[in-house]
């Protein structure tokens, strides 16, 4: 429609007839910039979740290509079997336990790192390394130090009578879960530290100076200046950490493979075992779909309750 007027002006390098397109040039370019992200999401999220749902309606052996339609039967089975509810419960214990420890430790580390004056850079680097270090290495270290054959923590714990000198704590029904929570927290507390530390560094010093002029003590300064600045980011990282810990598969699988028995079998471990140990691919997909729905519902509830998106969208 506007093609005739546009032509004479931009004749020099017109490859694309912008003016005859139904959308404006900016719209086309703008959508173009986010298109790769959309493609990635479709490929990695939309397809798999749709596929998982479709597969969950079938009875499939992991290694055979034969799909037998069974409708919602997998879902009936999911809610009926005790291992599902047991795994869900253990997953919640693992998630809540590690998130709380990580929040406390992570926040504390951030506050300390923000205040120390000497060796700050080195200490920050050491702390960050814990997060960047591959999980498998954390697991290998943990397996070594809790090994009854010359593992230093095993020896220390035995010294305190926590377990016998020949027992592997990671193979004990009593200790496997608490140790998993502690080992995971060693690595992942730093996630909370990184985000809160960045936020702490952004608080201008003049606020504290003003508070000092008013006669505030350190606790009051923390309560009235630091904490209000951190609440937004804390709500967000707690949500993220909970999601991540609920989904945690790698460190559990590497340390205990869900054992002993099913003492550390959480939902992700159960789903994985269903695929490879039970060879029930359709049923595993049903578990995956249920997990996804569970996460979606809790995330929405969390956003509704605390509205961390306010924090997220402050600058939109």
């Amino acid at each position: 429609m506007a093609g005739e007027t546009g032509e004479s002006i931009r004749s020099r390098r017109t490859y694309i007839p912008w003016d005859s397109l139904p959308a404006s040039r900016e719209t086309v370019v703008g959508i173009g910039t986010v298109l790769p992200v959309v493609v990635l999401y479709v490929l990695i999220a939309v397809f798999p979740i749709a596929f998982a749902f479709w597969a969950s309606l079938h009875d499939i052996h992991t290694l055979s290509p034969e799909w037998v339609w069974i409708g919602l039967e997998n879902y009936y089975e999911v809610v009926e079997i005790a291992t599902f509810w047991g795994s869900l419960w253990r997953g919640v214990v693992y998630m809540v336990g590690s998130t709380l420890i990580q929040l406390a430790v992570g926040l504390w580390m951030a506050l300390v790192l923000n205040r120390i004056t000497r060796g700050q850079k080195l200490l920050t680097a050491v702390v960050f390394t814990a997060y960047l270090i591959p999980t498998i290495i954390v697991s290998l270290m943990a397996l070594r130090v809790f090994d009854p054959a010359g593992g230093v923590f095993q020896v220390l714990g035995a010294g305190f009578d926590l377990w016998s000198a020949t027992e592997a704590p990671l193979g004990s029904r009593t200790w496997a879960m608490p140790l998993l929570i502690l080992i995971g927290s060693w690595k992942f507390s730093v996630f909370i530290t990184i985000f809160t530390l960045a936020q702490l560094r952004a608080i201008p010093n003049r606020f504290y100076e003003a508070a000092k002029v008013c006669g505030a003590n350190r606790w009051q300064m923390f309560r009235d200046i630091t904490l209000p600045r951190l609440t937004g980011i804390i709500l967000v990282v707690v949500l993220l950490r909970s999601i991540f810990m609920f989904n945690k598969f790698d460190i559990i699988w590497q340390l205990t493979e869900g054992g002993p028995g099913d003492a550390t079998t959480t939902l992700p471990v159960l789903a994985y075992k269903t695929v490879y140990t039970d060879q029930a691919y359709g049923f595993a997909n049903a578990i995956a779909v249920v997990m996804f729905l569970f996460l979606l519902v809790s995330a929405i509830a969390y956003f509704k309750l605390f509205n961390p998106s306010e924090e997220v969208e402050t600058t939109t």
Binding site: P48, I49, L295, L296
Partner: peptide
């Protein structure tokens, strides 16, 4: 952020 490797990985 909700994409869990295990949930996505299986399908």
């Amino acid at each position: 952020y909700l994409f869990s490797p295990i949930v996505i990985g299986i399908p």
